[in-house]
Computed example of a mutant assay.
Amino acid sequence: MGQRMDAPLIALIAGEASGDILGAGLMQSLQARYPGARFIGVGGQEMAAAGLESLFPMEKLSVMGITEVLSHLPELLRLRKQLVRFLLREKPDVVIGIDSPDFTLPIARRLHDRGLKTVHYVSPSVWAWRQGRIKGIKKSIDLMLCLLPFEARFYEEHQVPVAFVGHPLADRVPLETDSAAARRQLCLEADATTVAVLPGSRGGEVGQLMPAFLDAMVVLNRQRPALQFVVPAANAARREQIEALLAGHPGLPVTVIDGESRTVMAAADVILMASGTATLEGLLVGKPMVVGYRVGAVTFAIASRLVKSEFVSLPNLLCREEMVPELIQDGLTTDAIVASVGHWLDNPDKARALISRFQAVHQQLRGGASEKAAEAVSALLERTP
Rank of each mutant, 00 (worst) to 15 (best):
G166D: 03
I96T: 06
P161R: 09
F164M: 05
C146Q: 06
R172K: 11
K81P: 01
V173L: 12
L147G: 11
I134H: 05
P174I: 11
K138I: 08
R130N: 15
A163H: 02
K91H: 12
Q82W: 04
R153E: 14
P124D: 11
L198H: 07
I96R: 06
R130D: 12
E90N: 05
L87I: 08
A128K: 04
L87G: 06
P168I: 05
G97N: 08
L87S: 07
D93Q: 14
E151D: 10
R89V: 11
V160R: 03
E189Y: 02
L79A: 07
A108Q: 14
I96K: 04
G132S: 15
E176R: 14
T193N: 07
W127I: 03
D191G: 14
H120E: 01
L83F: 02
F103W: 02
W127H: 02
R153A: 14
P92H: 07
D99E: 05
K135E: 13
A192L: 12
V122Y: 00
I134S: 02
D191E: 15
R172G: 00
A182P: 10
A181H: 12
S179L: 05
C187F: 11
A181R: 15
L111K: 01
H112A: 02
C187T: 13
Q185E: 15
A152L: 06
Q185F: 13
R85D: 12
L145Q: 09
V119F: 02
